[in-house]
Design a protein around this nucleic acid. Sequence first.
DNA 1: AACCAGGTCTCGA
DNA 2: TCGAGACCTGGT
Length: 295
Amino acid sequence: MVSASVEGGPAGRAPGFVIPSGSFPGPLDLESTLASGQVFTWDQAPDGCWEGVVEGRAIRVGQRADGLLVESKLSEASVRRYFRLDDDLEAIYRSFPPDPPLKAAVRRYRGLRLLRQDPWECALSFVLATFCNVPRIRRMARALSLEYGETVEGRPYLPSPERLASATEARLRELGLGYRAPNVLDLARRVAEGHLALGALRGRPYDEVVATLMEVRGIGRKVADCIALFSLEHMEAVPVDVWVERILKLRAPDLRSYPELAGFARSWLGPFAGYAQQYLYHQARMGAAEPCRGA
DNA sequence: AACCAGGTCTCGA
DNA sequence: TCGAGACCTGGT
């Protein structure tokens, strides 16, 4: 067999490097990070490595005892930024309240990091995500990638706003998006036409970010919080989905509305409430999927 | 085969 | 302002 791997070709092997564990504060657990329901475009290869696209480049990452193995044309700085290796995870853990279930979730998923996602990918993903389960979100994202997306170094990836804006609602429904089809179109058109500058929302105040995002059809408070937390640096944002709502109502049974629940979560969980939320969410969802598993 | 899913929108009180 | 229903579809 001839291994004719050409640098840059689809089968080409990207340069590899290791980001040593000691070179960033706190642990990193790839499995928890990439399978915790914050991102839907990564796949796990048979060898256990994860494959995705970051900043328009393909990337393969693997968990190693000595750190994070990376195969990509991306710079190390880009990878560090994406995986939020600048976050001092132990300090974030210390900021959490002494809540036994939260402590259990942290113990179990230690090393779960929020990602610094591209705002467009994040917004598109969570408009797709409304009221459906994670496997289906991944399926819809894959369908959009294959139908309208571009291939990034051999890997299918989500379409640009411009490309998606040219889609028809009927075709999007055929791809299985259901009633999300017009919402996805509205989002794509606003971004493509420059009426919604997602990148410019970085650094803007939380209330302004949420209000701006909610102008899009299909983006309510919860989806806006997801975008704010996962791609716009608002670690205080607490997306309240059905799982998190159950958890919050155990502590505050009298709270009903979304603003009340999210506000309670922020005061209870502290400045990194969004981080804590992700541990609670992941714990709840995995617990439901695998009911019998001793701690 | 029901029941549920990282909700949002509309509408009537 | 608040609660109730409708809503596409596929996983489990």
